Amino acid sequence: MLRIRCLSGSLKRLPQSTALFSRSYIAAPPSDATKSSENNQAVPEPFKKVCVFGVGLMGSGIAQVSAMSDYGVTVVDLNEDALNRGQAYILKSLKRVAKKKFEDQQEQIKFTEDVLSKIEFTTKMEDAVPSADLVVEAVVENVDLKKKIFADLEPLLPADKDVVLATNTSSCSVTEIFSGISKERLPNTAGLHFFNPVSQMKLVEIVKTDSTSEATYERLNRFVLSLKKAPVKCKDTPGFIVNRLLVPYMMEAIRLLERGDASARDIDTAMKLGAGYPMGPFELLDYVGLDTTAFIIKGWDKNPELKEAGITAESKMLTDLVNAGRLGIKSGSGFYEYKKK
Rank of each mutant, 00 (worst) to 15 (best):
K48Y: 08
Y71F: 15
F111K: 10
I109H: 14
E103R: 11
S60W: 05
E45Y: 04
K161V: 08
K95Q: 13
S69A: 15
I109K: 15
G56R: 11
K92Y: 02
L153C: 08
L83D: 09
V76K: 15
P44F: 06
L83H: 08
T112E: 07
S69H: 15
T74Y: 08
M68F: 00
T112I: 13
V140N: 09
Q105N: 09
V65E: 02
E126Q: 14
L186Y: 00
V52N: 07
P46M: 12
S69W: 02
E80G: 12
F111C: 11
A63K: 07
K183Q: 14
K95V: 03
T112K: 05
R96W: 03
R85Q: 14
D104F: 00
E107G: 06
V52G: 05
Q87N: 08
F178W: 03
Q108C: 09
D162L: 11
V139A: 06
D160V: 05
K99P: 01
N142C: 05
S171G: 04
K99A: 14
E176Q: 13
F47H: 09
V65L: 09
N168I: 11
G61F: 08
L91N: 12
A128S: 14
K124Y: 10
T74H: 11
A166K: 02
G54V: 03
V164G: 07
S93W: 00
A63P: 03
G54H: 05
Q87K: 15
Y89N: 12
A82W: 04
L57R: 07
S66P: 03
I149S: 05
F111N: 10
L91Q: 14
S131T: 14
F150E: 07
K99Q: 13
C51R: 07
S170D: 05
K148A: 08
G86K: 13
Q87S: 09
A98Y: 02
V140K: 11
N142H: 05
E176Y: 01
V75Q: 05
V55I: 14
D127T: 13
P46R: 14
L57W: 05
V52Y: 04
K100N: 12
F111Q: 10
V115L: 04
I90P: 06
S173H: 01
V163R: 00
